Simulated scan of single mutants.
Amino acid sequence: MHRPHPHFARRFGAAFFVPALLLSGCAMGGDPPATPSSEVSAMQQRFIVRYTPGSAPERDPALVADRIAESARGAGLVDAKGMPGKVTWLRRLAVGADVVSIDPELDAAQTQRLLEALNAEADVEYAEPDGRMTIGPGPEMRMRGPAVD
């Protein structure tokens, strides 16, 4: 009976073991699923805001932080001195939206008020919390038609 060469068996085994090990790490995941966009996390500090093309903040990112601070003030998000939290423009994304940070962090109710105020503005296409996106289970889908056993 013919026995395979020991080096061949080691190489062949390693060729399948290493990719399997790497794929199992991907399948395990490490982060919990992202919160759906309709729900707001307990504390929020960073936001993504996309202004309509041609609007002043879309043309000049230096105006974004001031516009968001005005929206925060309009939404009633002020401290004891009547000042909104510090709004800092961080960067413009490839899709044209701006990422901003608000310090101190907003609680869920404050975040909801700010997002509603921003999304109500005529020159805002959308505003949303900036959060980590991961692959996770999606919403439960109801099946249509007869049940299959």
Rank of each mutant, 00 (worst) to 15 (best):
Y51G: 03
A94F: 05
A20K: 07
R113L: 11
P33W: 02
A69S: 13
F12H: 12
R10Q: 09
A62V: 06
N119H: 01
Q110M: 06
R11F: 10
Y51L: 08
K86H: 05
I68A: 02
A117N: 04
M28Y: 13
H7Y: 15
M1F: 11
T111N: 04
E121T: 08
D66E: 15
R50N: 13
A42Y: 10
R113D: 07
A9V: 15
A147E: 12
A117L: 00
G96V: 03
P139Y: 06
G145Q: 08
E140A: 13
S71A: 15
A94H: 09
L115S: 05
G30M: 11
V99N: 01
T111G: 12
F17V: 10
P19I: 04
A97N: 02
V64L: 08
A34R: 05
P33G: 15
D123T: 02
D130P: 02
R11I: 10
P33A: 15
R11E: 06
G76Y: 00
Q45C: 07
F47S: 01
H7V: 15
K86I: 14
T88V: 08
L114I: 03
C26Q: 08
A20P: 00
M43D: 13
V99H: 01
V148S: 14
R132F: 09
V148T: 12
G74R: 04
T88H: 02
W89H: 11
A97I: 01
F16P: 04
M83G: 10
R3M: 09
S71E: 02
T35R: 08
A97M: 08
I102V: 10
E70A: 15
Y126T: 10
T88K: 10
